[in-house]
């Protein structure tokens, strides 16, 4: 279960991609994602996938990037099969067109997973929250976002601890009909929720005790600065998008 959260943890690696401002990486992500959704032909989609590879290499996260793709292998196969079967019924048989279409959908899926994975692998949650602040989102919301991320591992551990305690009192999570299994979640979810409320109170107390809300304009220890490389990435992304749209319009 903990593997899911492994994906949310950035890798503390020194690389030019990690050092980029999250905002420029976000622009790149948005461009790539929108283009993958706008266009369905295999050539475009493949280019969109391949263009990520040099960046993954520069970011030195090849292993983790491939792992997240590997992790979604099941879904990939599922998407391929569903699309292929749909084309079968739609076109009255297995056709080359149907095969190509299914492959394209799968490549689109891989491209999207790859792009998001690349973003989250190279962006610290901290930088993410700083980016949100820079985007003029109220600090309260940014804080809520950061605090949520900070406590995700803790909540996961708590859930495990709660399950252990309830199993030790005879709760069997694996057995029973569907409705029984839903009911069996209650002894897990209730303590989890209550603990979360308690924690919120404790957090609020601690925050107030450290002068939260003293003045409207907070200062910050860390600041995001856009470098030339960031502007270069943004420019490249926008140009790339324009070129693709231009070429595809003819």
């Amino acid at each position: 279960m903990m593997r899911i959260f492994e994906g949310l943890r950035f890798r503390r690696v020194e690389s030019p991609i990690h050092n980029l401002d999250p905002r420029s990486k976000a622009v790149f992500l948005v461009v790539l994602s929108s283009l993958s959704i706008l266009y369905s032909d295999p050539l475009t989609l493949t280019i969109l996938l391949i263009i990520q590879v040099p960046l993954v290499y520069m970011a030195r996260v090849i292993k983790f990037w491939l792992n997240s793709l590997r992790g979604s292998a099941f879904l990939m196969i599922f998407i391929f099969i569903v699309n292929f079967l749909t084309s079968y019924f739609y076109m009255g048989g297995f056709t080359v067109d149907g095969l190509i279409m299914s492959l394209s959908m799968t490549v689109r899926f891989i491209t999207l997973i790859g792009a998001f994975s690349l973003f989250f692998l190279t962006t610290t949650p901290d930088d993410l929250s700083l980016a949100l602040e820079k985007l003029k989102i109220p600090y309260d919301i940014c804080f809520a976002f950061t605090a949520a991320m900070r406590f995700v591992p803790d909540i996961a551990l708590e859930a495990q601890s709660i399950m252990d305690a309830q199993k030790s009192r005879g709760l069997e999570l694996e057995k029973g009909k569907f409705m029984d299994r839903i009911r069996n979640m209650l002894p897990i979810l209730v303590p989890l929720f209550i603990r979360s409320f308690q924690r919120s109170m404790e957090l609020a107390e601690a925050m107030e005790s450290r002068a939260y809300g003293a003045i409207r304009k907070r200062t910050s220890l860390c600041e995001l600065k856009m470098s030339r490389k960031d502007y270069a990435l943004i420019t490249f992304s926008i140009l790339f998008m324009l070129i693709v749209i231009f070429v595809k319009s003819f």
Partner: peptide
């Protein structure tokens, strides 16, 4: 656990000072 709310130690220690401007 309930009095450390940032993602890094550095930012936690800075928290109060940031609040004070």
């Amino acid at each position: 656990d309930s009095q450390l709310f940032s993602l890094t130690v550095e930012r936690d220690v800075a928290f109060g000072l940031e609040n004070l401007g």
